[in-house]
Amino acid sequence: MANECNGCEQALAMEKALDEVIARYKDTKGPLIPVLHEAQAIYGYLPFEVQLRIAEGLDLPLADVYGVVSFYTGFTTKPKGKYRISVCMGTACYVKGAEAILDKFTTTLGINVGDCTEDGKFSLDACRCVGACGLAPVVMINDDVYGNVIPENVENILKNYEEA
């Protein structure tokens, strides 16, 4: 990857971090999933090159790595937005009208669930219960939790992420 980007510093740093992660887990039993979690934390997603490096580093067939990445919804091969919006569609949220909130986000942002706005700022996902069911319906944006959301609030919530 480093070559593709002509050794740009950030890519090199990320690669180094990834190699460290691989080295740290190499002797752990069942290292793949913890490594993937950390790799995703470094890169934001798991592109093919990263999967390949992990496969080589852990001495696993690439097919196994890809198999695991594609099995778990928590792993993504598509880049996510700077602000990741997750609308909870768990049971508690659903019976309290989460669907209308998800609809409001799709129309306001003009993107489908699973996609990212063109400027890379917001990505939108439906998720399963975040465990704040007492406040249903719930929306998470990165680590911020919004409870008792109504569709009319969606635009205001998004305003919090307008850059100054």
Partner: peptide, 11 residues
């Protein structure tokens, strides 16, 4: 793993 959406006691 608390997979039941709508449950948060284990959390």
């Amino acid at each position: 793993d608390e997979g039941d959406p709508g449950a948060f006691m284990d959390r």
